[in-house]
Amino acid sequence: MDLDELYRLLRGSHVRAQGVVDTIRDPLLVLGPDLTVISANPAFYRTFKTDREATIDMPFDKLGEGQWNIDELRLLLEQVIPRSASVFDYEVTAEFPHVGLRTMLVSAQRLAHPDNGQRVLLVTIADATERRRVEVEKDILIGELDHRIKNLLSVTHALARQTDVAGRSADEYRDTFLGRFEALGRSMEATANGRTAELPALARAVVEPYMEGDRDISVADEAKVDLASNKATPLGMILHELATNATKFGALSVPAGRVKIHWKLSTDEDDVSWVHLNWVETDGPETVSPEATGFGTRLIRFTAERELGGRAELSYRREGLIATVSFPR
């Protein structure tokens, strides 16, 4: 209900108006020209856990423990009667006795008694604490999202720049870049919405695009390993580099070739649990060590050491590559 309507009701039947005022959920005060309280509605007493004794005939700025004793607010209220000004949503954040820290929005409007012309102030107080809290949380969330978007742009930029162009057609460059980009997305997806990534699900998600046709990639079912969220993306990117390398040069470049992904756990002397993940290629073309360190090899080593806090061993056996990535869980 708006103030005009309230005003009309107040002019009409006193009893009916009293009922309306009593059921309004927001605290209401009627103040005299000297800003002392003439009356208060039940919501006022309820909200501020106070009573008539401590409220009626008290100066507005002495209510509670003086939370409304704000020079600026008093000046605004003092203008309402002589100038017919109004106060709209003046924000007061304070520690209220028995109530705690609250953010209140104060609005005030002049009312004139229809019979004797006495002017009073109708003050409404809305508790905006919850709304403010939600707004602050929303701002934090938006800030976090903004940070992630900016980060993702930078990471994408880095991937695009470091994906090799030498000796490649534009098609090849695009496919290699998009493969990495997709692996990043799949790895991030594994931990989206606060989910815990786990083996074998993460490994399956990353190699799935390479399982087209009758390519033979088997991912062990056991043991299920929960991965900290900051380990999932790095491990996913490592697996993707191994897969893309295998389709170009390794076992997955020929029909008979196979890849097995399996892992075991160990506990070191400091009682830290380690994951040892093996990528084993067999029945592929004869394998030779690459002459130069490409982006893929570099990513595997860099990531295993600096991001996973472990190590990667790449063993180019004649019968196929064995990669072992070991890292603390």
Binding site: S154, L159, R298, E307
Partner: peptide, 11 residues
């Protein structure tokens, strides 16, 4: 971000 760190190192 490890991918950015690696990119910086390579650059």
């Amino acid at each position: 971000e490890f991918l950015i760190a690696m990119d910086v190192e390579m650059m």
